[in-house]
């Protein structure tokens, strides 16, 4: 599904990612943990195609295609989805219009017919209920005036609508209460499929109780310094990052 080799990325001339190697196979769930500022969001943004970051070395292959050669919107149509750590508010663009345009451009990329208004509405209402948001939110501006938790649930709702092959969740669990956390986890689990993969960036092992990862990686100072199974997350929760020889600022 996804192969990242020796990835180096910089922003404004400052190197942030310093040689990342990661392979995610179809159906796998990978968790990425690590201290604040270690480059987790940078990796997520680079995967989604944020052009603020300069790729200085390495490659990213999705399926058999070179992801780095694709513009952001094409990556999305190829099935990459990023749930943002800080989803942006777009007043004046309604959620409905936004979702419909997104879904239909992805569908037409795959040679599928655009959904008619009624079918789309049915689908949107079904998915928004699935994440426990009031359907009235569909008419509001994208994330406009949403609380932190509502924004995160809206990200999951979009993911459910667009059914990506590779979902990258950047701290979708941060700042959620237990109920909302379950909603998010149920959403991700509903999407799990032998042909779909998930990368979850998180600081907290509690998410991993609900979405059990196949692998856990620790990212520090722009490199993956340790990988393991789900036990690694427990170990990190208990001992912090200090025992890995890095400064422990994860709980900051």
């Amino acid at each position: 599904m996804l192969k990242i080799r020796n990835l180096h990325a910089a922003i404004d001339g400052t190197p942030i990612l310093k040689g990342i190697d990661l392979e995610v196979k179809p159906g796998e769930v990978h968790a990425i943990m690590g201290p604040n500022g270690s480059g987790k969001s940078t990796l997520s943004q680079v995967l989604a195609g944020n052009e603020d970051y300069e790729i200085t070395d390495g490659e990213i292959i999705l399926g058999d295609k070179n992801l780095l050669e694709m513009p952001t919107e094409q990556r999305a149509r190829e099935g990459v989805f990023l749930a943002f750590q800080y989803p942006v508010e777009i007043p004046g663009v309604s959620n409905l219009q936004f979702l419909k345009t997104a879904l239909n451009s992805i569908r037409s990329y795959h040679g599928q017919e655009e959904l008619d208004a009624a079918t789309f509405m049915r689908l949107a209402k079904e998915k928004i209920k699935q994440v426990n948001l009031d359907p009235a939110f569909l008419k509001r501006g994208v994330n406009e005036g949403f609380s932190g938790g509502e924004k995160k649930r809206n990200e999951i709702m979009q993911m459910l609508m667009l059914e990506p092959r590779l979902a990258i969740l950047d701290e979708t669990d941060s700042g959620l209460d237990i109920d909302a956390l379950k909603v998010v986890a149920d959403g991700v689990n509903a999407l799990r499929h032998p042909e779909r993969s998930v990368i979850m960036v998180t600081h907290y092992q509690r998410l991993l109780d609900y979405i059990v990862p196949d692998y856990v990686h620790v990212l520090a100072k722009g490199k993956i310094i340790k990988s393991g199974g789900k036990e690694l997350a427990l170990e990190l929760e208990e001992k912090g990052y200090g025992w890995l020889g890095i400064e422990d600022s994860a709980n900051a």
Binding site: P71, R75, I90, G92, F98, T101, A102, S105
Partner: peptide
Amino acid sequence: ELFYLLTRGIPKDQAATMLTLGFVVE
């Protein structure tokens, strides 16, 4: 805002149109 729309597969020109309209639509 533009990047957010692009990450959902929306073509760039359409995204720009949506944002421009959105700016006054309120």
